[in-house]
Design a protein around this nucleic acid. Sequence first.
DNA 1: CCCGTGCCCTGGCGGC
DNA 2: TGCCGCCAGGGCACGG
Length: 269
Amino acid sequence: MPELPEVETVRVTLENEIRNEIIVGLDLYYSKIIKNELEWFIYSITNQKIHRIDRMGKYLIFILDAYAMIIHLRMEGKFYIKTDEPIDKHEHVVFHFKSGRNLRYHDVRKFGTITLLNINTYLDEYPLIQLGREPKNLDFHHFFEMIKNKKTTIKQVLLDQHIVAGLGNIYVDETLFLSQIHPTRIASSITIKEAEIIIESARQVLEKAIELGGTTIRSYTSSLGVHGRFQNELNVHMKKGEPCPVCKTEIIKIKVGGRGTYVCPKCQH
DNA sequence: CCCGTGCCCTGGCGGC
DNA sequence: TGCCGCCAGGGCACGG
């Protein structure tokens, strides 16, 4: 499941590969990925040039001539660049380029989304308009103000992209471990000092993960640009039954807000 | 407004 | 070995 560091890694790789390519055609094998009206989407994207690729939180943003194409990979979305290889069963959208190469959107679970918006207004439209700030741009006082009356758990708050952008299940578990805060803590019980520690921990975790190219787990191994090494740095996520790297207590797995959650029951309060 | 639940999807795994 | 049923999970719609 790509989170901010994995999406950033994909962004950099993809941009180097396909900057300045011109989209001349499109093949759709599973069109529900596209959130626009289909005929409009196909008509509009044809002959558009890819100038650069941006990222906000977990969203990739293809900057075209007149449009911005907003892509969310959700759990298993990934890209491949190919030429005339046969279509894979999980390749749902193929962008053909003038150069003869093509970009293929591959998604086993079909949860990903592609939305084409006007280049002049995309930041003021759904889905980006309601996106929170990334930890590196989020002042902890502001974060504290947003969560101080919330009755949900701190983990659910950190997963909420309207509040903080970019964190998913892996990096929330790691952030709360570094913060020594238990994921089931009610958000309104978090002190201003703890809010500062949480934001600082999230920055550290994300920065390190980006530096290492993200986390490579399970099905994400062969995705374009994602051969990350952050999985070697994980302290608690997917470590059920293993000793806590700090106190040696056994890491346990619990459910928080319906999500599998890994925690050191001794270090995190 | 706020929060919890169900839905979208399919590969993989546990159980028998 | 094979089949069935269930789970994971990001974000949104919906309902209380």
